[in-house]
Design a protein around this nucleic acid. Structure first.
Lengths: 97, 97
DNA sequence: ATCTTAGTTGTATGAATATTGAACTAATGG
DNA sequence: CCATTAGTTCAATATTCATACAACTAAGAT
């Protein structure tokens, strides 16, 4: 059982855990469909979550490499990290259409 | 927020939960690479899991629609459910190569 | 019939996750 | 400087999930 495979599988598990939640699926779906950046606070407008909970979901997605963050003033704008998605889940985003 | 989307997302969450575990990733990977059926008891030879634990993992995968089961005598042979995989995760299996 | 083999199910336990609310930091605007 | 806004962090709680072990069912084999 080689080491590279184990590392790749760890990454896969992290990604699947990150997507194994309805709120986070909705975040990813919104980011893909709207083709625009999303701020943490806007998530509350999509699903019914508190801001601290939204922050937690964003961190989970970020740590899995699924989103990237750009900071401007107090606001953090997130976008999908397409490189990760293409590497580990090619074709997945299109199934959200 | 329409009802069809919510149902599809529930299914997505179920699938991602099912794949969010190293043992189950290995099972899926083995089924794909070996291109043969796998019996519950054989899982212990791939990862270090007890038979009841292997049974639990198979149930999780089956309930997510990721594997199909064929029974012969006492043995249950599983294969990937390619329809589900193609619908929700097209291109994923190939990333396991 | 008895023994063995393959798998399931129940219960218990510990680990990981999700959610909340309050306190906090950092940037902005008056 | 003070108030506001956006987000993070912490502690507490609730829920879900993974694992183990024992008891069980079902199908064969002798």
């Amino acid at each position: 059982m080689n080491i590279e495979l184990m590392e790749a599988n760890e990454q896969r598990v992290k990604i699947f855990k990150a997507l194994a939640d309805p709120t986070r699926i909705e975040i990813v779906r919104t980011l893909f469909l709207a083709k625009k950046e999303l701020a943490c606070g806007e998530v509350g407008g999509i699903c019914a979550v508190s801001k601290s909970n939204a922050s937690y979901h964003f961190r989970t997605l970020r740590e899995a490499g699924l989103i990237k963050v750009r900071k401007h003033a107090q606001t953090k704008y997130t976008t999908l990290d397409e490189a990760t998605l293409r590497k580990y889940l090619p074709g997945f985003l299109e199934t959200l259409l």
